[in-house]
Write a protein that binds this DNA or RNA. Structure first.
Lengths: 129, 129
DNA sequence: ATAGCTTCTGTAGCCACTACAGGATCAAGG
DNA sequence: CCTTGATCCTGTAGTGGCTACAGAAGCTAT
């Protein structure tokens, strides 16, 4: 059994975030030592690592929670997992498109911006466009 | 002079958001009619439209505020505008890269997910990877 | 005994809104 | 004149996902 700092180090999840996940009911409450300190089992730390990876893949926390539950239920429900992941990938692609649109617009707008300009073309575009 | 609903319609900025911008000091406090209702001039509405366009270009609100100030100061400081915009475009490109990384990872992880699977490969990757 | 590290609880801040609640006022129709 | 419904007002709380304290207690090493 490990203290919260050790669990944080082993899982890569910050201490405050671990307590936050506990408050939110995303991970079960860990055991407490006689001095009231949280004590984490290897399985607890595995859950944190699982959540960490979900978050790194950009899943919303609610999805991460669902995935964790699916992972711990009897027999992996691969279809539900796939549905979640595919919806997420669609969202990611949407965001990419949106950002590429932004990038193109910004690039075009800044192209004519030069330090010597009396009237800034970007500002005038923002004012009138 | 226009009431807040009309200002919202003309600028595309939501009513609650207009009041929020006022609270945050991003736009000056508008005049009030005798019945205490906010009254917006064409210039006020122009400011809101300006902010709206900045936000649509993905500028953080703090940047939008700065751009508005630059826009209203004597002589457009094109260099400052350009610096802001170029930094923003760099951030956008970073985000795009990050999302593309996510997309590739997710696509690979879901590729082997099929509804008939007994053990979900995505889950097992999250558990062990 | 002391110093410094870790942990505890509880609360507030971040960003940029958004959504109420509960009340006042206005414009139009009967 | 009265009602109905739209609009407006202030103030507060919620969103997501943490992050940063404050102030106290306990642990470990010297």
């Amino acid at each position: 059994m490990f203290a919260i700092g050790e669990a944080s180090r082993q899982s890569g999840v910050g201490i405050e975030t671990i307590r936050y996940y506990e408050r939110e009911g995303i991970v079960p409450k860990p055991e407490r030592a006689s001095n009231n300190r949280r004590m984490y089992s290897r399985q607890d730390i595995g859950r944190l690592r699982f959540l960490k990876k979900c978050r790194e893949l950009g899943f919303p926390l609610a999805d991460a929670r669902t995935l964790l539950e699916l992972s711990e239920s009897d027999g992996d429900d691969c279809q539900s997992v796939k549905d979640l992941a595919e919806q997420h990938v669609l969202n990611v692609r949407e965001k990419i498109k949106e950002l590429e649109r932004l990038e193109a617009a910004l690039t075009e707008l800044t192209a004519n911006c030069d330090s010597g300009n009396v009237s800034c073309p970007l500002l005038s575009q923002l004012r009138t466009g």
